[in-house]
Amino acid sequence: MSSDRLAVRKTYKLYVNGAFPRSESGRTYEVTDAKGHFLANAARASRKDARDAVVAARAAFRKWSGTTAYNRGQVLYRVAEVMEGRHVQFCEEVAQSEGLSSSKARAAVDAAIDRWVWYAGWTDKLAAVLGGANPVAGPYFDFSMPEPTGVVAVLAPQQSSLLGLVSVLAPVLATGSTAVVVTSKERPLPAITLAEVLATSDVPGGVVNLLTGDAEELGTWLAEHADVDAIDLTGAPAGRAMEFEREAAGTVKRVLRPPATEPDWTADPGLSRMTPFLETKTVWHPIGV
């Protein structure tokens, strides 16, 4: 390839309902690398974009939650496969966004891909681990099973642009909920590349919606939105989590509170990011009547 070829630059847009629209507001903001050099103009999602994303996530919920656990596991595994094919691109974007050395960036991308694999293996085990038969004192068959909570709004971590994002998104999908994600404000580019992976990985449109922009404003709108069932406040801007939690109380949302500081995303997450977005359904039926 001739070295004087002019590169074709990518326009970074939102990912809503399986498509890549610009913000309906026409707003964008400048994204720079860790040293302050211009990287791209990202779309700055508006309230209307957030609402469109919730509508898409709600519409996608019935089919995604009804997909067999085995099938959901395969789709999540497929995400890992497709990510692997873009390994170099992710490494470059993570290194630029987070100011990491190439070896550290590679470690983060490796861990992000492996996390999809880990959650892919969970989909068809949760019901056995979290559900079961209840030995009630009477002639009834009684069992409990986990079910996805619905539409989950996720404020993704502000620091870890890819591993952190995957760590909060994959558990929502593994459990059968659909997601509206607000990406890291200053490091949104790996998220949009991840959206391109999702769009080509058999994840149905609307199951994941990614909004680049400011969690400060988007967080408020999602916290008070009546058709959002749960909110993960991990990436809430400092000092705003309490307010978002208060707003979420208006419709009794499930709230995952933010940690005091951004956690070490390489640690084994256990069930801690899945159970907050699971409901337990208990079914009774008489025996012998």
Binding site: N134, P135, V136, A137, G138, Y140, D142, S144, T149, E279, T280, K281, T282, V283, W284, H285, P286, V289
Partner: peptide
């Protein structure tokens, strides 16, 4: 959260109860 099929309003300490 609780579905009663061909029965209703049954409760037991072994059986999780709560809402969506």
């Amino acid at each position: 959260g609780v579905i009663w099929a061909n029965t209703f309003n049954k409760f037991d300490p072994t059986s999780p109860f709560g809402g969506y």
